[in-house]
Amino acid sequence: MMELSPIKTIALKEFHERLRHRWVLAIGIVFAVFSLAIAYFGGTQEGAVGFRSIDFTIASLVSLVIYLIPLIALMLGFDAIVGERERGSLDLLLSLPVTRFELLLGKFFGLAMALGLSMVGGFGLAAVVFYRQFDRVTLPHFLGFVLSSLLLGLAFLSLALLLSVVTRDRTRASGLAIMLWFLFVLVFDLLLLGTLVSTSGAFAGDGFAYLLLLNPADVFRLFNLQSLDAVQTDYALMELVPPTLAHPGALLLVMLGWIVVPLWLAQWRFKP
């Protein structure tokens, strides 16, 4: 029988620790500075600086977030369990009236709060500036972007916890976290594009596009770019995406799956 009290206690402790060593503040500043910088200087390749439309701003931010958030979430969560194991405190925690699943959920929610607060703080500051620059109608777009960024962060946090459960030491866990980042952020799309090009588009049917769902970073990109007509051409694989796949509700469900499934796998592997 799962109890909420230990989950809350562990979550608050994790959150408190991240606040205490200023992790939340540092990452919040990173988000604020990068989002403002990318919004202002995003058009330099076209020979202009300054804020452009909210569509272009979000598209630029998507490019930033897709690199930054998975990395931050993986770094935040990779040692959640394996770190306790190395310190010798995992056995101590599990000797208390706390189940492994409660410990895992407590860790997840605590780290999620830290990640969420830094994102809301960082992007919130940017939102204030955007609110003054763009008209009020554009704000829901930006909120959608922040929400999907948070979900992307939670998906990678969930993957990080899975890594943390299955690895025996922090060094291996950090190495695997970086490999996972490379795989999802850099290699996956390259493999899909490479397959398409090398087969001269022989597999370019609707089914192929569904492979994008196997990567939470692509789900996030689809979620944000499907509504931004002006920038869809910036993403080569966007052409393959059928309308049924580009539905926000479906993409949201897939993203929730990317949060729940690794967590479920983590609790399944986290056995005595």
Partner: peptide, 30 residues
């Protein structure tokens, strides 16, 4: 488990908490 006390060998507790906060954490769990 509430009636059991355990001190593992060479345990490293949480550096960023103070002694009292550390005990509050374990007290709440117990």
């Amino acid at each position: 488990r509430r009636r059991i006390g355990y001190l593992p060998e060479n345990v490293v507790l949480y550096d960023h908490l103070d002694g009292l906060e550390t005990l509050h954490f374990f007290a709440r769990l117990k």
